[in-house]
Amino acid sequence: MTPVIEVQNLTKTYPDGTQAVRSISFHVEEGEIFGFLGPNGAGKSTTIKMLITLLRKTSGDMRIMGLDVDANPDAVRRLIGYAAQEVGVDDDLTARENLLLQGELFHMDRNTLHRRTDELLNLMDLAGDAHRPAGSFSGGMRKRLDLATGLIHQPRVLFLDEPTTGLDPQNRANLWVYLERLNKQENLTIFLTTHYMEEADKLCQRLAIIDQGQIKTIGSPRQLKQEIGGDVIILRFANNGQSVAQQSEQAQTVLGDAPFISGIDRFDEGLNVYTRNGGEAVADVLRLLDARGLRVAQLSLSNPSLDDVFLKHTGSKIRDEAPMQNWRNVRGGPFGRRR
């Protein structure tokens, strides 16, 4: 069967010479939720804009349902729905008017359009507020309306650029439920970009880790985490006469020879140490470091997370933005198990 999205060696170089996307290849199967996980500036939005016909590629091949995107932009537009990071609804129009306008632009016939509008208002739990202007909606409701307007013409694939950026944790988790519902009830293929690991972990059946315009690895979240194997001990150092970098380097040398350690990755504030049984290894790790006079400022032990996968493939940690911070403080802390 033809994949819904097929991308081969896609490249985008901006006129100023910036190579935003460097020869990436991937495919998305029907009914899949597929994600691009990467930091801001990794090339996620550029890729999505090329796929939804808003930006021209420099080279490579993009197909949606077998159609060459650049050669058939209008045909592709009928097959895709899109919700940008910004909420693209008209605040002066009611929820219903927003949906009807969008449907009219797809030249849907009246009956189908009205039936579909009711269907989406129900699906997104907006039926009770259908006659209120979108400007009076909460952030979560506006986002749901935005999703609905992107779905009015029953697209085969929905593109979401950072769907939950700017939402508080509760609304974010809420939106995930709606996305999963759409995926199941409408057998909708979803392509999304995110820099929230938790989102990628929770929603995506498969994901690509993207950094500096390149895909570093592709797989299901579980697969990717299993590749790391065992547990992760995260060591953080603080400046104490010796710089963090120096301490990290020394620690890496000391621990590098230990037989119970399967791998080490460095990040700005310290090290990720991979081991089969973290609980047993912690004491040994500390003893080895102590013998060299290295003091660990903070230590945590966890199962591998996508953050660790990211570090392993890119050499740096992905930085979550503010809203996630709250969750981290609640769930983990020094010496606690992370999310």
Binding site: I52, T53, L54, P73, D74, A75, R77, R78, I80, G81, Y82, A83, A84, Q85, E86, V87, G88, V89, D90, D91, Q102, L105, F106, D146, T149, G150
Partner: peptide
């Protein structure tokens, strides 16, 4: 342009 409404219009086949 700022609100993203234009982007949405541009992904319709109009």
């Amino acid at each position: 342009l700022d609100s993203g409404f234009l982007s949405k219009l541009l992904t319709t086949p109009i």
